[in-house]
Design a protein around this nucleic acid. Structure first.
Lengths: 247, 247
DNA sequence: CGCCAGGTTGATTTCGCTCAAGCAATGTGG
DNA sequence: CCACATTGCTTGAGCGAAATCAACCTGGCG
């Protein structure tokens, strides 16, 4: 493995954008070969270890980040040190585009949760591509708009649902993304997060998280062993946050 | 005045996009004359009375709405009838772009809070303009990204601040937008919202709203008479949600 | 072995919700 | 002009969910 200092540069793995495994899943899939050439020139690959910070709230935005492997968490922290984990970023996702597109500094910080490899594409390159290829802009518009949609849904959820209901919902989302949801029947999967971060995802404390888990176990809704979750009946989980579906 | 049925069409006021007063404050300011011609053709002016619904959650998106006069509230409601007022839309703002850009149905509903005149621009027109003019896309990208930024801030606020602090913050935002903030010294302005809607803006109940107002009055932070708010010292209001600023 | 981070548990408190009633302003029909 | 609904807001009492504070496990690791 290459050197693993904070945000160390790296030549290992995919050498460029042409051979990149995840490119088809990114916004860049609409680019022509000439444009990918440009993209490739404005690109540096970096590697991060768990806990390393990719950017901080308040930092000026110098580009966007294209996830190749690993996982990144985006956090927002207030002056008292309270923090919320807004979302998880996984391979194929783009990171840090909000600040660039809004023309603002970062309003949240990003931190590697697993060993992570990311390509950094500098702002001028992205801007230039956006200015000349409307299709890329439309791609990003869709991405940001969808993201806004989820943020608004999260606002509603946090305002109206209990911690338990929000956690049940989070489990469903994580299952969709990180588990192989074989539709019906009992399901088992690995949580990608610590209890602390699970709590931060739904805007609560680790203590409340712990108690909620315990109560859900005693109610037979889910079984937790470390980071492994076992869900006997998927419906009973859904019932926790959408009871009306089963009336 | 023209007929005032639900979302009635209207020929009064600004006749077209060329003479439109608010156009320079909208995304459309980057369009060429030829493009404005196109915009103008895909346009219908409508009028709404307070309480009338412009679109509903779940409705398919048929275009975007360009505010000319009045005020609109965007609400999101869950299955139990709990609802949150996400934001207020005022002249020069565009409404309903999220659904269009995301390629989704509306995820929230919009309702006139005051007598309102809006131009409806149909989807094909907007799409066509976006596909041919990257500058328009960039404009919208900035708009959506900023909006996403505020949504994320709202998530943090709701998770970490008390009802009182959130309300103080709301007052500041409303003051910025609807009051003439003469920087320092005592300030007075009109709230554009009922108590019920103030509550919905910060995700609480009218009862809690009422109590919070009462307590803030007795603490001398602000004085409320109907919809008129008087703030003796602006700093003490800011202290409510950013105490660290004054340490 | 002792330390420490991550997690759990318990005791206590507090904030804000729910339910219920009361009240002032406005409107409506007889 | 009065009885009466209706609407928007306030007030009170009680309760419950979740935060806080504090102690205490437990497993990994120097």
């Amino acid at each position: 493995m290459a050197d693993t200092g904070s945000g160390s540069q790296s030549g290992s793995g995919s050498i460029n954008c042409f051979t990149c495994q995840v490119r088809d899943r990114t916004e860049w899939c609409v680019l022509s070969d000439a444009e990918i050439e440009l993209l490739n020139k404005g690109r540096i690959t970096k590697e991060y270890l768990p806990g390393e910070v990719i950017f901080h709230e308040g930092d000026p935005c110098r580009g966007v980040f294209c996830m190749e492997t690993g996982m990144v968490g985006v956090r927002k922290t207030d002056a008292d040190g309270n923090s919320v984990l807004l979302y998880l970023v996984t391979p194929g996702d783009t990171l840090g585009y909000r600040a660039l597109l809004a023309g603002e500094d970062y309003q949240a910080s990003a931190e590697a949760l697993e060993p992570t490899r990311i390509c950094v594409i500098d702002s001028p390159t992205v801007r230039s591509l956006l200015e000349h290829n409307p299709a890329l802009g439309l791609r990003y518009l869709k991405r940001v708009s969808r993201s806004l949609g989820s943020a608004e849904e999260k606002i509603l959820h946090n305002a109206t649902l209990s911690v338990r209901a929000r956690f049940a919902h989070l489990l469903m989302v994580l299952l969709d993304k990180y588990g192989h949801k074989n539709s019906e029947g009992p399901t088992e999967f690995e949580l990608p997060l610590s209890r602390h971060d699970l709590a931060a995802m739904i805007g609560t404390t680790p203590e409340s998280m712990s108690r909620t888990i315990k109560k859900m176990e005693s109610d037979g809704v889910a079984k937790f062993a470390g980071r492994t979750v076992h869900i006997p009946v998927l419906e009973s989980l859904i019932m926790e946050f959408e009871p009306e579906t089963f009336l």
